[in-house]
């Protein structure tokens, strides 16, 4: 882990968590990461590395899938949140945008936002759908349409807008680029960066699309089989040859045949690094 990057408690501090599903399958093995207040932190890694599980552990969803945090601590703004129910975390300002968008398909866009207003319960804040429509004018045009018929990009906008309506201090974004055209991805990442800047929302951004993520994040973690293997400021990570090779898809001339031996080599090196 690197030096403390800001003063005061971090928006999110995950220390050495172990997550087990169905009492037997271990998915996270001592994962640690920090999201300093106001920053965007990217969490990258291949399929099955445990990125989504990490977000679920933070937002309290694990018990719903017979998963549990077996060890370690999760602190949100300095307070331990290991065992807090998901709806209470949402009401304390953690906005989780789940992988695969999950809009309420048979509710209209407006109704999706109204439902999301539940995150404001007990906080004495009025819901501001207009703010969401300012960030996503496309949604405003479709506000009375059923969400199931929106395009993929619009659904992703709604998913982000819904979380934003709950006035989060920390947003967990799970692959916002999933299944979207490059142009739409670019658009959405621009808005994510704007939300971070203008609303001061700290963000933990899980992505497969490393390029897009590094474009807006200040710091990055790369995880593999349940723990972090490389981390650093994104401007350093993009120059790391291993990262270039395996996550950005360039670097040393990559010929497919040689790659398996290289993966082995990479794994050795990785262990050494962490």
């Amino acid at each position: 882990m690197s030096e403390a990057r800001t003063a005061g408690p971090a928006a999110l501090a995950v220390e050495n968590i172990e997550v087990v599903y169905h009492h037997t399958v271990q998915v996270l093995r001592g994962l640690s990461l920090t999201v300093p207040t106001g920053q965007i932190v990217a969490l990258l890694g291949s399929n099955g590395a445990g990125k989504t599980t990490t977000l679920k552990a933070i937002s309290g969803l694990l018990p719903m899938e017979v998963g549990a945090i077996r060890g370690g601590q999760i602190h949100y703004q300095g307070e331990r949140i290991n065992d807090v129910a998901p709806h209470l975390l949402a009401r304390r300002g953690i906005g989780h945008v789940r992988e695969g968008r999950h809009v309420f398909e048979d509710l209209t866009v407006d109704e999706n936002l109204i439902a999301a207003g539940s995150a404001l319960i007990g906080r004495n804040i009025k819901p501001e759908p207009e703010l969401i429509y300012e960030y996503f004018p496309r949604l405003k045009e479709r506000r009375s349409q059923v969400a199931g018929y929106l395009s993929g990009g619009e659904q992703q906008m709604l998913a982000i807008g819904r979380a934003l309506l709950g006035k989060p201090s920390l947003m967990l974004l799970d692959e916002p680029s999933l299944g979207l055209a490059p142009l739409v991805v670019e658009q959405i990442f621009e808005i994510i960066a704007r939300i971070n800047r203008e609303q001061g929302v700290s963000m933990l951004l899980v992505e497969q699309n490393a390029m897009a993520a590094f474009g807006i994040a200040q710091y990055g973690y790369i995880m593999e089989s349940g723990k972090v293997v490389i981390d650093g400021p994104t401007d350093k990570l993009v120059k790391d040859p291993d990262v270039q090779r395996f996550y950005l898809g360039y670097g040393e001339k990559s010929d497919a045949l040689a790659s398996f031996r290289d993966v082995k080599h990479y794994k050795r090196r990785k262990r050494w690094l962490s």
Binding site: S59, L61, P86, H87, A90, R98, A116, S118, A119, G166
Partner: peptide, 9 residues
């Protein structure tokens, strides 16, 4: 699940 993370009990 999604309802939960949006603050719905």
């Amino acid at each position: 699940m999604t309802a939960y993370v949006l603050g719905i009990d």
